[in-house]
Every structure is written in structure tokens, then in C-alpha cells.
Design a binder for these strands. Structure first.
Length: 287
DNA sequence: CGGCAGGTGCGGA
DNA sequence: TCCGCACCTGCC
């Protein structure tokens, strides 16, 4: 059903079902939110939850300056024309995203999906609402009931140790997501770097997806390097341009919004791919 | 069957 | 600071 999204969410320890529906248009955007829960929720809780959803969905992101700066850009202009109003969304809390980042490491997409599914089957919360059956994330304490050996049995491999160490940090309240939102990019980076199993690649994704740093462009991994070389500089994928050169290109063209601009190209590319195969891309994203 | 993937920690130079 | 290496598992 177009314009409707069902998802789970755990907020202040309460597992929820959410239904989000499109009501407005690009120029007069409006959505409705329906919340499903086992017990009644008071007004304060709902207000806090709404604010959190606004944050995670970037509903208050001001795109005026971005649109104004790039709508005439020879490359980005056409993309903005197709996607005006598009904002990046991330449905997950910092802890949940860290779990995802860990299963993404050094694995193909298929394997990452398998690992996450196994974790959900073992630790997740099954929810039925509005005719849907979905699974939600767990509390850190739940995962800590398992040993490293039990995690390894879920085929997460050496990532078991990272999952436990990161989860322990959250169970001990050593990381405060809300406080980090108010911190400087440098403070955030250092705090995340202290987490075992989290390195430069994961941190790049976290700063962008979880903390909405629209100009984050520090790390470019080899697979991204190939795709960006082809996409922006028309180089063959087997002979990509060096990473510093790519960063210089982004500095020149999209300064202030490097991550957001690249995100727009990604969205454009992947939607185009739905309707017409993009041959050079298919071999790079082996599912 | 060896190599490698949408990385990271660690030890040693 | 930089580099080489091991590492779970699945797939080619």
C-alpha cells in the first residue's frame, strides 16, 4: 500500500507498533501517526515519542538553503528536481544502529541480513498490530543474558565480542544518545571510537544516519570509492580514483552538505535501478 | 578449495 | 602514525 509504513519501535523500554500514513503533498507535507501498544500511554509519553520520531525522520530539517544552493548545480540540480523535499530518515536508536553497523562489517548484504534475522529471532520482541506481524529490537539487558558462545552459534562470528562489548556499554549507561546529540561532531566521534568493534567506517554511517551530520565525509570505503568514481567522475570501476581525490571533489562541489548531496544521488540511483538495471552497479552490490 | 566481502583491533616497525 | 595480519561465515 503506497504512502503507508508499519514499523516497530522501542521507546523508553516500551515496545510499540507504529503506522505512518501520508496525508499531504510535497508542498504541504503532512503525515498521521497511529501508535499501538499493549497498555495505555499518557500524554507526556506520547509527546516525547512524537518528538523522537520527528528527530529520527528529520521532519524539521530545513532544506531551503540546500535547495537554494544546489538547484542550479549541473549535476545535483536535476536530482533535487526529482526529489525536492527528500530528507534522510533513520528508524533506529543509537544502540540499535550500532548493532546494525556491526553486522554490516566485512560481510555481504545477504550475510548481514541473516545475522540480523538470527539476532531478532533470538532476542527480538514479536509484535502483532493492525493486521501486521513484525519483530522489534531488544533492550541491551536482554542480549546480555547470552554468552559469547551463544551469540557465535547465531553465526555472527567474531562480531559476537563486539556485540557484547557495545551492549554492555549501553547497559551500564556509559553512552547517552541524547547528550551526544548536543555534542560537537568531534566529541561524538571520540565517544563512538571508544566502543569496541566500532571503527572509522561504522562511525561515518553513525554520524550521518543517527546524528544527522549532513557534511560528514571523512571515510570512504573501497566499495563506495568504486561507486563514487563511476558515478561522479565517470571512471571504470576497476580503476577508481584515490579516496583523497574523491574527497577533494566533494569539497569542491558540495561543501557544507557533502553527505546529504551524496545521499540524494544514492536515492536517485537506487530508484532508477528499480525500473532499469544499472549494469555497472549490479556487479558492485552483490546481494 | 583459496580468496574475499559494505572492517576492526592489535602488535610491531 | 602507519602497516600487516587474523578473524567468522558464506559464496564464487
Amino acid at each position: 500500500m503506497p504512502g503507508v509504513r508499519w514499523q516497530t519501535m522501542r521507546w523508553l523500554g516500551v515496545p510499540l507498533g507504529l503506522k505512518i500514513e501520508r496525508q499531504g503533498s510535497v508542498d504541504e507535507p503532512k503525515i498521521t501517526l497511529t501508535i499501538f501498544s499493549a497498555n495505555a500511554l499518557d500524554q507526556d509519553y506520547i509527546a516525547g515519542l512524537s518528538a523522537e520520531i520527528c528527530y529520527r525522520y528529520n521532519l524539521e530539517m530545513d532544506l531551503v538553503d540546500y535547495n537554494h544552493r544546489f538547484q542550479e548545480d549541473p549535476l545535483l540540480g536535476a536530482v533535487i528536481g526529482r526529489w525536492r523535499g527528500l530528507r534522510p530518515v533513520n528508524f533506529n536508536s543509537l544502540y540499535e544502529y550500532l548493532v546494525i553497523a556491526i553486522v554490516l562489517q566485512n560481510a555481504t548484504v545477504r550475510r548481514s541480513v541473516n545475522m540480523l534475522q538470527a539476532l531478532f529471532d533470538r532476542f527480538g520482541t514479536r509484535l502483532a498490530f493492525d493486521g501486521r506481524q513484525l519483530c522489534g529490537f531488544w533492550e541491551p539487558e536482554t542480549l546480555l543474558e547470552a554468552s559469547e558462545q551463544e551469540l557465535r552459534a547465531l553465526k555472527v562470528g567474531y562480531r559476537a565480542k563486539s556485540l557484547l562489548r557495545v551492549t554492555e556499554a549501553f547497559a551500564r549507561k556509559e553512552i547517552d544518545e541524547k547528550a551526544l546529540r548536543g555534542s560537537s561532531p568531534d566529541t561524538r566521534r571520540k565517544a563512538l571510537m571508544n566502543l569496541y568493534g566500532i571503527g572509522p567506517a561504522s562511525i561515518g554511517y553513525l554520524l550521518w544516519d543517527v546524528f544527522h551530520q549532513v557534511d560528514e565525509m571523512t571515510h570512504i570505503s573501497p566499495w563506495e570509492q568504486k561507486i563514487y568514481s563511476r558515478l561522479f567522475l565517470d571512471r571504470p570501476v576497476d580503476d577508481p580514483v584515490p579516496v583523497p581525490e574523491l574527497i577533494a571533489y566533494f569539497n569542491d562541489h558540495f561543501s557544507g552538505y557533502r553527505a546529504l548531496a551524496v545521499h540524494y544521488f544514492w536515492e536517485d540511483l537506487f530508484w532508477r535501478r528499480k525500473y532499469e538495471p544499472v549494469p555497472w552497479l549490479e556487479e558492485l552490490i552483490r546481494l
